[in-house]
């Protein structure tokens, strides 16, 4: 199996739009103490795309998402959101600029009610809260039924819906999904992924971090593969899907 990994096919990808990318990451390096979590990572996300970020655990996927969202301060490199630099260490600024992270492990506010969770999602907006709540309950009827229940009592799938619904309350232009399938039954995962596809059709640009490579490649337009903090492959998802995924990311490119 000597085929070359598909690399830098970005320029040929048909989904690239002419105007500036929604997210442009250039040679990003992030360290935690002695650990270099990301090394010189660059990527772009065009308007209306779903871009997958794949790779084994510890590859730096979550760090990349959190850095794009402004949680971490990179050592070098920068993140541009709609052409404006994201300030490291001030996630509220990126959030106000229309970015939402649906974090790994969902991070809902367990002791607060479902409705309060949703209201926090709309904190960066001033108004039309009522309509937004109604829209959320229309989209996720189960959340409507449980609106005054504390969020911690929801099932895993319901919590993931709440996390996405919370993000949508802000009418974001871009959503970063960090492992939305984590710990969910396959049937629920399908629903969540359908939802992500549907939101893309509504014009929401999406970045999808997934360990489940097949799912991510089926859904995304393009994808990047992250290994040990660097991008090891990238290209159209349909192209990436043709090569041996196990080799690509379970085996760090080597074979037995």
């Amino acid at each position: 199996m000597g085929e070359q990994l598909v690399t830098s096919s970005f320029s040929t990808a048909s989904t690239v739009v002419a105007d500036q990318p929604v997210i442009a990451v250039t040679s990003l390096t992030v360290r935690y103490g002695a650990v270099t979590a990301l090394r010189e990572v660059s990527l772009e996300v065009g308007r209306g795309e779903i871009v997958g970020v794949l790779g084994p655990n510890g590859a730096g996927k979550s760090t990349l998402m959190r850095t794009i969202a402004g949680v971490h301060k990179p050592v070098t490199g920068q993140v541009l959101l709609e052409g404006r630099p994201v300030v490291g260490g001030a996630p509220e600024k990126a959030a106000r600029a229309g970015l939402r992270l649906v974090p790994e492990g969902r991070r809902i506010f367990g002791p607060l009610t479902v409705e309060e969770n949703l209201r926090i999602g709309s904190m960066s907006r001033g108004s039309t809260l009522k309509d937004d709540l109604e829209a959320a309950y229309d989209r996720f009827p189960i959340l409507g039924e449980r609106r005054s229940q504390s969020a911690g009592t929801l099932s895993g799938g319901e919590q993931q819906q709440l996390a996405i619904a919370r993000a949508l309350m802000a009418h974001p232009t871009v959503i970063l999904y960090d492992e939305p399938s984590l710990g969910l039954a396959p049937r629920i995962v399908d629903q969540i992924f359908e939802l992500i596809a549907h939101l893309r059709d509504e014009g929401v640009t999406s970045v999808l971090v997934e360990q489940n490579a097949r799912l991510a490649l089926d859904l995304s337009d393009r994808a990047y593969v992250l290994g040990s903090g660097s991008i090891t492959a990238s290209g159209k998802s349909s192209d990436l899907a043709k090569i041996d995924l196990a080799q690509l990311y379970l085996g760090k490119g080597a074979q037995r």
Binding site: M1, R214, L215, A246, Q247
Partner: peptide
């Protein structure tokens, strides 16, 4: 195992010889 790890059925036929 392959399903759990890689998503839906990744047949062994895709790449004989396995990993």
């Amino acid at each position: 195992v392959r399903e759990a790890y890689l998503g839906d059925a990744v047949g062994a036929e895709d790449h004989e010889g396995g990993m």
